[in-house]
Amino acid sequence: MFQSLTGAVELGLMYALLALGVYITFRILDFPDLTVDGSFATGGAIAAVMISHGYEAWIATLAAFAGGLAAGACTGLLHTKGKINGLLSGILMMIALYSINIRIMGKPNVSLINADTLFSPIDSVTWKYILVLAIVVFAIKLLLDAFLHTDKGLALRATGDNNRMIRSFGGNTDNATILGISLSNGLVAISGALIAQDSGFADVTMGVGMIVIGLASVIIGEAILGTRGVFWTTFAVVIGSIVYRIVLALAYRAEWLKLKSTDLKLITALIVIVALVIPTIRRHYKQKSNARKRTAELAVSARGKGGI
């Protein structure tokens, strides 16, 4: 039991970077970016190939980051300069990356068994593993927070919030969009690189459904901790990623549910659907009851004055 929980926390931390990436596009830029499914595997592929060719693991991970940045920039260019619909630009890149990822690896998957990964020095001690991962993830989170409070970062946030306004103040919204999508996919690719090193292989299908997993983490985190400011929300997203993994681990342990590992994506989709639908329903009923209450008040006070 304990082991499956620590395993869930480890995975949650590694996928937290994916979730932060999805947060940048979905929440900050308001851009549903499906590139993620491809760029996650790109990150894994680049890291795995480089490590298996004897490069230092940290260099391989940085290269994965660069690969993700490039993939995201392509999507951004397709959308802003090519004027292609946002969803479609992401899907196009995702499909293109499938072939590119196989080209990078030279085959559909690369094994990292017996290779020196980022985790090799700390592999044997669970608490060290979690501590190191947590420090790395929070350092990246803080860097992202800091960036989002710089002049450039503010312009990026305003691009998603009110692009007409930031243009009237000289913000180049095209460049901000490209930068945001690029940064997002860079983080996603690091996440893919970490997962490849942790699981000991990279596979061309490893990115399938990542967009939904990222989204689930964002939504869960926001639901638990709320969205006060950027600093708090990125924290919520990291926690959301960990909670998501813990929930999955518990679900698999509940034998009466008879879950198979292939049910993962169905469960994820269900979590996202529920998380998206419940607030809508709740808002609907709240508005209705508020309106009823308020009109009742007004009606009573009108009657009190003896009508109009």
Binding site: H149, T150, D151, K152, A155, F169, G171
Partner: peptide, 13 residues
């Protein structure tokens, strides 16, 4: 954001 109207936006706070 308004304060940087028409100026380059860099990495200062």
């Amino acid at each position: 954001m308004a304060y940087r109207r028409g100026k380059p936006r860099g990495l200062s706070w």
